[in-house]
Nucleic acid binder design. Structure first.
Length: 290
DNA sequence: CACGAGACCTGTTCGC
DNA sequence: TGCGAACAGGTCTCGT
């Protein structure tokens, strides 16, 4: 039995990593059926229509928009948000469903695409795309128009449209503390708790700084820092910590996140943990002053 | 508009 | 060892 496991978690680099690993395994496969094991996982449409509409569609591409996984089908789009504990796996073979499996999509095996030659010669083995999610926060949409789900999102931080000037303008259009603002997906789409802390430290900005006080120079630094930490995260296949561990290794390169009491990589001062907007927040008290 | 608290959920780790 | 508290990568809604 082949298991294609992923870094099951939430921020942009992790979702990008998952999209890249799933793409070759899924493109060209046909959906035979869908089994929903936790009803609330399906955000839209109704479970009945979801099952009915997804059946028979062919997977054309796998990509990402912000933290949404975007699976383009022949006649519609499957959008998946992993939230806190979601994970996507391609499973081959007939193992029993696991405890946290919330949605199981049965795929027909295309003989031209056998992922492991010599295995599964007859194409009789089942292949499944499984959405597992211990905390049940994750959501899945099946829709004709991607924008019905993603229209509220701000700019993609790695796109050409996201410029230092744009960031500066958006920061000055608001009067909010930097950390919650960067986590706000309508302001910028893709950052989560880890990469926000990392970017603010790299830019030497305090998470409580008010957005309209940021200078052009600081906005430029923040812009560079955001792109830098996201690219690094992708290069390292995302971050994996605690019990939701999978393949990434960016956790071995954190500057401040989850490093309370450890030395700042820039100046050696002990990292502090505070709570901002109910989220654990990590700062170097020396590098990041108000 | 900005912000805090509470919800939604389960599992692991911490502190006594 | 046991047990409740605290905490977790996200986002939504409500009240101030």
């Amino acid at each position: 039995m082949l298991l294609l496991e992923n870094a099951g978690m939430p921020e942009l680099p992790e979702v990008e990593t998952i999209a890249r690993s799933l793409r070759p395994a899924l493109i060209g496969r046909r959906i035979e059926s869908a089994e929903i094991r936790w009803a609330r996982t399906i955000a839209a449409p109704s479970i009945r229509r979801f099952k009915q509409q997804i059946k028979g569609q062919v997977i054309r591409d796998v990509g990402r928009r912000a933290k949404f996984l975007h699976i383009r089908l022949s006649a519609s789009h499957l959008l998946i948000h992993l939230r806190m504990s979601g994970d996507l796996q391609v499973r081959e073979g007939k193992a029993r469903p696991e405890k946290h499996d919330r949605l199981i999509i049965v795929l027909s095996h295309s003989p031209l695409q056998a992922s492991s030659p010599g295995w599964d010669k007859g194409g009789s083995e089942l292949t499944r795309l499984v959405f597992s999610d211990a905390r049940k926060f994750g959501r899945v949409w099946l829709t004709d128009r991607v924008e019905t789900v993603t229209s509220h999102l701000g700019p993609e931080p790695l796109s050409a449209a996201f410029t230092p000037q744009l960031l500066y303008d958006r920061l000055h259009a608001r009067r909010r503390r930097l950390k919650p603002l960067l986590l706000d997906q309508t302001f910028l789409a893709g950052l989560g708790n880890i990469y926000t802390d990392e970017a603010l430290h790299l830019a030497k900005l305090h998470p409580l700084r008010s957005s309209e006080t940021i200078s052009r120079r600081q906005a430029q630094n923040l812009h560079g820092a955001i792109r830098s930490v996201l690219k690094q995260g992708i290069r390292r296949n995302g971050a994996s910590i605690d019990w939701v561990y999978r393949g990434g290794e960016f956790q071995n390169h954190f500057r401040v996140y989850d490093r309370r009491g450890e030395p700042c990589p820039a100046c050696g001062t002990a990292i502090k943990r505070l709570v901002v907007g109910q989220r654990g927040t990590h700062v170097c008290p020396r590098c990041q002053r108000m």
